[in-house]
Amino acid sequence: MIEVQDLTKYFGEYAAIEKISFTVEKGEILGFLGPNAAGKTTTMRILTGFLAPTSGRAAVAGYDLATHSLEARKRTGYLPENVPLYDDMTPRAYLAYAARLKGVETRQVRKRVEEVMEATRVTDHADVLISKISKGYRQRVGIAQALIHNPDVLVLDEPTVGLDPNQIKEIRQLIKGLGGDHTIILSTHILPEVEMICGRVVIIHEGRVAAMDTPENLALRLQHSQQISLQVRGPAREVQAKLAALPGVMRVQSIRTGDSVVELLVDGEEKRDVREALAAAVIQNGWGLRQLATVGMSLEEVFHKLTAEEKGVSA
């Protein structure tokens, strides 16, 4: 649904993005993750036709932005980072304007406005001047605007920024509900957001794609070793020694030793799953397996790693 190939954008001498490539399938929610000034907004602006790339190609719903910009724009809903609202209008009037601008049929305008206001829950502030409504409502009116022409593709630039926790939760649920029907690209620098909403993540750093995968795989891929936490009922010392001897196990640390239960942290070799081997060994020795769980790296660590690693020691 979205194709981006070798996209590069220079502002003067400065490369905002360089050779970015990715594709998004229909119905997918893609997270665009990166620190500030990584090039997220620039990429989104190119995808929505607001900026022209220096080189490279971008296409939305099969329409190349360079040659069929209007067709592509017809099929795209866009929430810029800075929500584009007119303070002198009410949400209702504003959304009606946006609907007509985006080519919603005149007869359908009123109905569509009601529908998106319902979906984004701004109906109760429909007739208050936009200059008088709160940040949360502004954001929601912005999302309503992006949805107004029922586009195939939604591009949301930092949709939850500046909202309070309750509002964030609501907006995330709303976005998640939109996936499937719509193909969504969402940028954020908040990691849990990506883990919660997105099926796939592109990590962008200093204008380049640093990594691209599902949140889970990304975490897995970046683990140099797999770590497993284990609770076993049995003689502490013997348990530790036996498990450490298993193939693929690099190190066994004892975290806590209780009366009869020992809590261990096991480091496995890279790309080797030792969980089943561990479980089998515990059972074979007649001990009690109380708990076995992988200690996954959160995407937050992955992200930190990805973006900090290159800087090396100087960071």
Partner: peptide
């Protein structure tokens, strides 16, 4: 708001 105008068809 120019972003709305220029990203509309």
């Amino acid at each position: 708001t120019i972003e709305l105008l220029m990203t509309s068809p």
